[in-house]
Amino acid sequence: MATIWDADEVKSSRASGRESGYTLPAVARPVTARNRRRLGPGPAIPFGLQIGPALLVLLWVAGSAFGWIDPRILSAPWTVIEAFARLIEQGRLQDNFVTSATRALLGLSIGLVIGTILAVTAGLSRIGEALIDGPVQIKRAIPTLALIPLLILWFGIGEGMKVTTIALAVIIPIYIHTHNALRSIDSRYVELAETLRMSQKDFIFQVVLPGALPGFLLGLRFAVTLCWVSLVVVEQINATSGLGYMIELARNYGQTDVILVGLVVYVLLGLVSDGLVRLLERRVLSWRRTLAN
């Protein structure tokens, strides 16, 4: 900020000095030609990321306290906390949470395994790529939501359909990012492996797979987010248990406080799972950290 101001100061005082012919008045701070207009966003604000959400919560509290927000539209924060306590007391929140988490984890795991196998097969062999890549790209073009009617016909409305929907959604980012990473392994490393006369097995396990790991982990982050999104979709369309069902039921009875409890749980799940993947990333990719950081 100061830099910009200084730069302007220099420009304007020089101009005025030339026109009027007076000597420049002494400025409060020595201004030198080294000051350039800063183009970057500048230094980080402490706790910058927390400011936006905190402000929103503050607005919510104030709005509810002063009666600006109709509780039928949005329950007050304290009502939501009460609802939270009540749902835990009744055991409904825990039960629904366990049901949802089981679906999500099962779908994620299945999708993860299938997506990785497909990516490695397509990434390591031309035949595999010819057979797999096309269908996956086509699947990618179909929104998961649009597949649900078909999946209901095939699997009914039970757990099978829900887990399949989640797995099908998860496969895509895992496949895309892992496959891309496998294909963009530096050809110089391939040359190196050839001169070292590495076996095919060593080449895959020492060079190709570790090299593709950053791509896989990026895919995993997208997959985790997508897994929660698909969970919400399947639970609100056809379910008799789970967080989405709880929210859907609350809508029928106009309980905005319960809806908000469900949303808060979704937020926490999303943030915690993303944090876990990032932690994993830092552990596994420790080679990326250099002395500098």
Binding site: R188, Y189, R197, P210, L213, W287
Partner: peptide
């Protein structure tokens, strides 16, 4: 039985120094 040294060191960044030396 020949070895090649390239212009870039061409070490695998995801393997430690000793793992790079004993590659394969």
């Amino acid at each position: 039985n020949l070895s090649v040294v390239f212009q870039d060191a061409r070490l695998l960044p995801w393997r430690t120094v000793i793992q790079n030396v004993t590659l394969g």
